[in-house]
């Protein structure tokens, strides 16, 4: 069964009765990746990420009967989780804007991947979580969760071209952040 078919069947099974069991099936299918996104967006704060997931499901279940299937269900849910995370962050976090002003430079994506291999996992996590919200979103969606630029465009209500340019800037910002950390084995 392909992912699209499974999504439709999960939604159909839930909407047939709005049962707890039907919801738990959807929850089990979608929440692991949504929670990862929430956790990274909330800089590793598990309690806040859990609140985001809870609020996301409330909004999703309120609206799911009107979902038009113009995108996948996962894409739609990801958009909701990002909205909920932004709202939480507005209340709880003051993001440093200094990285937004970084100059844009041209770099090879392959080189970028090679560069990342030099750093410990925890350093990478901290560097991603240190990024401004907009950059963090695009890196989480594309480089961690594997969304395409087309899907990201749908989630963030931007064009695919903007998604690509934002990713480029986000990677550059990440690179600058990592420059302040020591690569593995260099100590």
């Amino acid at each position: 069964m392909d992912e699209k078919t499974m999504e439709r069947q999960l939604a159909k099974a839930f909407l047939a009765e709005r049962s707890e069991e039907g919801f738990r099936q959807m929850y089990a299918h979608f929440t692991p990746s949504l929670y990862r996104i929430a956790l990274r967006m909330c800089k590793g704060h598990t309690t806040t990420a859990e609140d985001v997931i809870q609020e996301m499901w409330i909004r999703a279940i309120e609206r799911i009967s009107g979902f038009s299937w113009a995108s996948t269900l996962r894409t739609w849910l990801t958009g909701i989780v990002l909205n909920c995370a932004r709202e939480q962050l507005r209340d709880q976090s003051k993001n440093s804007p200094f990285l937004d002003a970084l100059p844009e430079t041209v770099s090879s994506p392959t080189l970028f991947a090679d560069e990342l291999d030099r750093f410990a996992r925890q350093d990478l996590v901290q560097a991603v979580e240190a990024l401004p919200v907009g950059y963090r979103e695009i890196l989480i969606l594309h480089d961690i969760e594997g969304f395409t630029h087309q899907s990201i465009a749908t989630i963030l209500t931007i064009t695919p071209g903007t998604s690509k340019s934002q990713l480029h800037r986000a990677r550059q910002a990440l690179r600058e952040t990592l420059n302040h950390k020591s690569p593995r084995g260099s100590k």
Binding site: E20, F23, R24, Y27, A28, T31, P32, S33, Y35, R36, L39, R40, T46, E50, I53, Q54, W57, P109, T110, F112, A113, L116, R121, L124, V125, V128, L139, H142, D143, I144, E145, G146, T148, H149, K164, L167, H168, R171
Partner: peptide, 26 residues
């Protein structure tokens, strides 16, 4: 920038969904 390149994919690992969250959400 390379549509298929996901250099941070490994960061998917090691994140566990809290057991109690499903019941809270329900």
């Amino acid at each position: 920038p390379n549509e298929d390149d996901t250099p941070l994919f490994s960061l998917q690992d090691g994140v566990e969904l809290p057991d109690a969250l499903s019941n809270r959400t329900v």
